[in-house]
């Protein structure tokens, strides 16, 4: 169990601890499918063109092959990496997330400053039973987004956050 920083070690170097919860494991499949779709479109176009235009076949198949390999590698590796690094937490005080691996990013938004709470489910997310929760503050760049939540968890969180935010009377700017 993490104990919040105590004052006994004021000089110890600080770091941010990982948020408490991992995203839903199904998010791995969802991210992988996104990569597959993203690379499949140009690959299919290149292959079809290559079949139709025999003289240019090599120069169309080559990039198609490279793209396919890269796409497959991304679809296999990145979602697993992200799954280990995308984490979230909602306390009575704030929403706290961590995303990314290469560019790691932690975001904190205090409940008292939250303006809107949205959940969104794209077509792919619905298939996987997932949802994305977006919490916005008055800042144009302060939105906190939690991707790959179980749809029910997201709905419960949104309801809970909406109640909690209404309880604070500030105008949140």
């Amino acid at each position: 169990m993490t104990s919040p920083l105590t004052d006994e070690s004021p000089n110890a170097p600080l770091r941010l601890r990982p948020p408490r919860h991992a995203v839903d494991p199904r998010a791995v499949g969802w991210w992988a499918l996104q990569w597959v779709l993203l690379t499949a479109v140009p690959v299919v176009v290149l292959v079809v063109l290559g079949l139709l235009i025999p003289p240019a076949r090599f120069w169309l198949f080559l990039p198609a092959g490279i793209l396919a390999v890269l796409g497959a590698a991304a679809a296999l590796a990145l979602p697993r990496l992200w799954f280990r690094h995308h984490r979230w937490e909602v306390t009575d005080e704030a929403v706290y997330t961590r995303t990314g691996w290469f560019f790691q990013e932690w975001r904190v938004a205090p409940l008292s400053r939250i303006q809107t709470v949205d959940t969104a489910r794209g077509p792919l997310e619905q298939r996987f039973g997932l949802a994305t929760l977006t919490v916005t503050t008055a800042s144009a760049r302060g939105a906190v987004k939690i991707e790959g939540l179980d749809a029910e968890t997201a709905a419960d969180l949104a309801a809970g956050l909406t109640v909690a935010t209404q309880a604070t009377p500030e105008d949140a700017t």
């Binding site: 993490t2 919040p4 920083l5 070690s9 110890a12 170097p13 600080l14 770091r15 941010l16 601890r17 948020p19 937490e89 306390t91 005080e93 704030a94 706290y96 932690w106 904190v108 205090p110």
Partner: peptide, 14 residues
Amino acid sequence: VPGLLRPFLVAGPA
């Protein structure tokens, strides 16, 4: 901003 980040901080080497 006192209190906001504190719950998420821990002491220790990065």
